[in-house]
Structures are given as C-alpha cells and as structure tokens.
C-alpha cells in the first residue's frame, strides 16, 4: 500500500519545540509543511522513546513513513540539546563519525547520534520495494581471480 504522503525533508523548530516535515502529497503533487509540536518532552526525556512514540502516532505516522525512527531520534536529540543550552553547532558535531572510534564504548544516546549519521547514507543508497528495479533476492558475485590483499589484515595477524 502506497502512502498518500512522502516526506522530503525534516527538521526542527526550537520555539515552540517542534518537528517540521516537508512532504509531498502524492496525488496532487503539492508540497506542504507540517509542524508537529513535541509534547511531554523535556531536557530529561528519552529521545529514543520520544521518537518511537512519534513514529507510531496515529495522527502523524502517515506523514512519517519515509522518516526513519533514528532520524526522528536525532531531531529529538537536537531539541533536547537546545533545551540543555547546547548550540546547534555542538549537536551537529556530536553526530560526526570517526571511523576509528570504538562505538561499543558509547552510551545509548551517544550511539544514537552516530547511528543517525550512518542512516543518512543508508537512506541515500536504500532501494525501496516500491522502486521499479527492486529485486528482493539481489545477488552479485564478487569473486575475482586476483584480489588485493586487504590492508586490514596486514598488521599483526593476531587471531586472524
């Protein structure tokens, strides 16, 4: 079933704290803005739960189909950071990905920040079931007669 709305962009508004969705009405092709005030949310709230609540909200969920829960979580984190007095620059910097960082060591919220960032690429490269060239069991053979040895294997071979 195709949703009548497709979210194009999402963002936040600090006052009053709201999530903003720019979406297209699939039938009329009209682009509209929806401002969703964030209720029962404070600087002590759990962003993950708040995001889940919004994602499943009966009045808003149809507009949020194309917005992942982790994107919503990220927006809530930005709102929460603002409530705690952090700047937007600070919030955005905290989403920065360092490929050498051990993410196992992060707290739930710190990890959510990184995952939100990774989701950007995921969504960009994602092939949806609705795409005309979607193949469920897509197979690609990568076996090659000569392969470069992976530099990740080069150093100490402990356990490898």
């Amino acid at each position: 079933m195709q949703m009548p709305f497709e979210a194009k962009r999402c963002g936040v508004q600090f006052s009053p704290p709201s999530i903003v969705i720019i979406y297209e009405h699939k039938e009329t092709k009209k682009v509209r803005k929806r401002v969703i005030p964030v209720r029962n949310f404070s600087k002590y709230s759990d962003c993950n739960m708040a995001a889940e609540r919004l994602k499943n909200h009966p009045r808003h969920r149809d507009y949020l189909e194309a917005v992942t829960q982790s994107q919503l979580e990220k927006l809530h984190i930005i709102l929460k950071d603002h409530m705690q007095g952090f700047s937007l620059v600070h919030s955005l910097a905290s989403f920065h990905l360092d490929p050498d960082e051990d993410l196992n060591k992060l707290s739930d919220e710190e990890l959510a920040r990184k995952k939100g960032q990774m989701d950007k690429l995921f969504e960009k490269n994602r092939r949806h079931t609705a795409d005309p060239n979607f193949v469920y069991d897509l197979e690609v053979d990568f076996t090659k007669p000569t392969t470069d040895r992976c530099s990740w294997d080069d150093e100490s071979d402990d356990g490898f």
């Binding site: 690429l121 995921f122 092939r127 690609v140 294997d153």
Partner: peptide, 24 residues
C-alpha cells in the same frame, strides 16, 4: 576487490552485502 582473510583459515563462508541496496 579486496580480500578479507579473517575466517579463511576456519573455512567460514564470506559475503559482501548491503542492507541498504539488498546485495546478497
């Protein structure tokens, strides 16, 4: 194009996949 050797010694099958585009 690179080969990742972990698991080769143990004879573990290896897959290049993408959860985003669905490859393999």
């Amino acid at each position: 194009q690179r080969s990742f050797n972990f698991g080769k010694k143990q004879g573990l099958p290896f897959y290049f996949v993408s959860a985003a585009d669905g490859t393999n």
